[in-house]
């Protein structure tokens, strides 16, 4: 089946085709899911190399489970986000936490002149602040505010109630704001 014809198929349909030995379904799933899994892992870990390993491992698990996948029971992405988060948490436990202060600061004078540098500095600072959150808070904030998922799906991924997700996300955002408060001026948010 041509790749274009697969673009409108759901992840679950593609996985069934893959389980039936369709290499075009393998390609379509790779191109569709790898960016999402990698981005999620990178935001949870704050490390591209580690995120690449996690993304590859999460997808290997998907390929292996494909023949036993039961249609209609869960979304492929929900399952993948859960597996990815678990792999990330395992890795985080093995690595030292990154201190917010270790993120390179923009050089004086250059930051105001170069918007892209400042933009990158803000994203780096946000990532560093995310890294300081407890695992579950970070996962909830990333799923809600960076991956753009709704609370019901997050609740399913994290195996908790929607109300608990709302509470966790709110606490995560407060903690993020607190972690970033000391860097407001350096990141270009001037006070008057």
């Amino acid at each position: 089946m041509p790749l274009d014809a697969l673009n409108d198929r759901s992840d679950e349909d593609l996985l069934a085709l893959y389980a039936g030995g369709d290499p075009m379904a393998a390609r379509a799933l790779t191109l569709r899911l790898t960016p999402r899994v990698f981005a999620h892992a990178a935001r949870l870990l704050g490390d591209r190399a580690e995120a690449e390993d996690v993304a590859q491992e999460a997808l290997i698990r998907l390929w292996k489970i494909a023949p036993e996948w039961r249609m209609g029971e869960a979304k492929v992405t929900t399952w993948l986000y859960r597996v990815t988060a678990n792999l990330c948490i395992d890795r985080k436990r093995r690595q030292r936490s990154v201190d917010l202060e270790t993120v390179p600061e923009p050089e004086d004078g250059q930051a105001s002149a170069d918007e892209r540098l400042q933009e990158a500095a803000r994203i780096d600072a946000l990532q560093a602040a995310l890294n300081t959150l407890p695992d579950r808070q970070r996962q909830a904030v990333v799923l809600r505010h960076l991956d753009g998922l709704g609370n019901p799906e997050i609740a399913e991924i994290m195996d908790m109630s929607v109300r608990a997700v709302e509470s966790l996300t709110a606490r995560g955002k407060r903690a993020l704001a607190q972690a970033l408060a000391g860097r407001r001026e350096e990141l270009g948010y001037e006070e008057h």
């Binding site: 960016p35 990698f38 981005a39 990178a42 946000l126």
Partner: peptide, 8 residues
């Protein structure tokens, strides 16, 4: 940060 998602 959402708009500039890390790309594999």
């Amino acid at each position: 940060a959402r708009d500039e998602a890390p790309f594999p």
